[in-house]
Amino acid sequence: MTTNTLFIRILAFGAIVAIIAGLFWSQNPAFLSTGNIRALMRHMSVNGVAALGLTFVIVVRHFDLSFPGVASFGAMTMGWLIAGGQPLWMAISGGLAVGLLFGIFNGIAVARFKLPDIVTTIATGGLAIGFSYFYSNGTSISRNFFMSGLLDINDGRFLGLDRPFAILLGAALIGILILNASRFGRAFYATGENETAAWYSGVPVNAMVVAAFALCGLCACLSVVLLVASSGAANVSAGTQLLMPAFAAVYLGAALFGRPSVLATLAGTMLMSLMLNGFTLLAIPYYYSDAIVSTVLILAITCFDPRISGALRRLIPARKEKLA
């Protein structure tokens, strides 16, 4: 993508944000209040971190449906460690380790053993949910949470930003460095674009797929840490709400920016959160939000699909058509 088209796409994204924000603001001026914007950024943080990890899996053209289950297991592991009196850093590391291990497991199954990604990750996700019941037979854990300092992750501030949002920005920055500025990023894209050609070019394609799944698991568990910090309790269904918004954010971003990338995912997350937050303010019942997210997901997939975008392009007369 040239800098020029990137600039145009960012402008277009800004315009969409302005229109949506303007619409909600005209219905309810509280939409642009400081309080609401902070709530919005907080909401973005949880979904954004999960979507960030998923971006890598989508870039290598695979699917991970296990990360919600893995996140639940991570949440319960962390909760169990806190309740057992472990220091906070240890508890968080334990939660993240769960994500990393499941991700690596998924990646090896898919890359090395060529198992079908969708079915495999549904199964590992189910497995992770099963494991998450072990600690407390399925009851939620909140013992020691207040004393552990976990809640400060949600309430604290960093450089004037709410801490969850600062964590999202930090994770996104690392993501941009890896995926869009480093040689590993090239290898991720090359693997997804044409695995055979990438292998012939010396790219360790299996390792890239494993790394993508590992990052996805890790990010899912990081996002659930933020979620648990805001709710104050770990429960076995903590991760389930991550699935749809993460996929919607990645695909919406890819539709806006022409391909999946960290920046695109951030943009997608922001649009999703804008809409969900706006509908909440308009007092549209929460149970519609799943339907709204799903609708956006379908629209985004439609735009991202080369056949559809190709058909749209064909509607514009053959002016720029390549000479055969």
């Binding site: 500025a181 480093s182 090239r186 090359a190 044409n194 050609a197 790219v203």
Partner: peptide
Amino acid sequence: TEGLSMDENVIFNTTVANLGRASLGGFM
């Protein structure tokens, strides 16, 4: 199928078989 990433541009395809030369300290 074996030589090129058809949706990527000329720079991407030229450098992909030698990412070590195309990067410094890991960065492109």
